[in-house]
């Protein structure tokens, strides 16, 4: 792989997020190369989700700059960032509860529609053809994530693990260059986590994706991440390969400390 410092897809230049008196993330500096799988770990409340929210435009960083694929995306709206090619999933699942599995995925195609609402109301061919093609694409995608058999079920009636997979499918349907996964293995048993790991590795290959994931399951993180960033109380306390992180004294203490606090 080329030198990531010269050829990176996402760079966060010391981004900081302040909520009142609380610095949820301070001076986070990420530098991620295309097609890399990067893990973001840290104890509860470390600021991981907040970092995702800054990158995806949900929060505007208090200071710092985010560059994605050569564009300055700091302060853009989430939908603009999605259109530039970053997709995400949510820690607390956020599916569209009134819709079926297929309809959830199909929604991600809405912005790709070239037709006007008037054409849709009148059922003109430019709209109906595009819509039909999108349905086919989404069915294909559901096939690949093994959700095709439940395509017409209500999304929120699926078991937990499948809902997480659907969130990933929905993000993939936006045709991203990079995907941000917030605790994709949460609530899964070891077998399911293992399948998820394989799944993530596979979609990276298949779609040429860059992956940034938050995860508490260490076997998942150590298993597939090529680079790991550790946050604690908003500070970046370590970065490196899985082996480096595993042997890092500060990281071990942060985790032990967190265990002590919660005990």
């Amino acid at each position: 792989m080329a030198n990531p410092w010269q050829n990176s897809i996402l760079v966060t230049d010391n981004i900081t997020m302040q909520f009142g008196g609380l610095k949820a993330v301070s001076n986070l500096a990420l530098n991620i190369a295309p097609r890399q799988i990067v893990g973001l770990i840290g104890p509860n409340g470390a600021g991981k989700t907040t970092a995702f929210n800054m990158i995806t435009g949900v929060y505007k960083p208090t200071s710092g700059k985010i560059t994605f694929d050569g564009n300055d995306i700091t302060g853009l709206r989430p939908n603009q960032i999605t259109e530039l090619g970053i997709a995400r999933t949510f820690q607390n699942i956020r599916l569209f509860s009134s819709m079926s599995v297929l309809e959830n995925v199909l929604l991600s195609k809405h912005v790709r529609l070239k037709a006007t609402p008037l054409e849709a109301i009148l059922g003109l061919p430019r709209y109906t053809r595009a819509r039909k093609r999108h349905i086919e694409e989404c069915m294909d995608l559901l096939e690949q994530v093994q959700l095709a058999d439940v395509a017409h079920e209500k999304a929120t009636s699926l078991p937990y693990g499948k809902q997480r997979r659907l969130e990933i499918a929905r993000a993939l349907a936006t045709q991203p260059k990079m995907i941000l996964l917030d605790e994709p293995a949460a609530g899964m048993n070891p077998q399911e986590s293992l399948e998820l790991m394989e799944f993530i590795a596979r979609i990276r290959e298949q779609f040429g994706l860059t992956v940034l994931m938050i995860e508490h399951h260490m076997e998942v993180v150590m298993g597939i991440c090529e680079h790991i960033v550790v946050l604690d109380h908003g500070e970046t306390i370590a970065q490196g390969t899985p082996t480096e992180i595993q042997n890092n004294q500060q990281v071990i203490e942060a985790y032990l400390g967190a265990v002590d606090e919660s005990a």
Partner: peptide, 8 residues
């Protein structure tokens, strides 16, 4: 009023 950012 205080500024609050909705938690996501």
């Amino acid at each position: 009023g205080e500024n609050v950012v909705e938690k996501v």
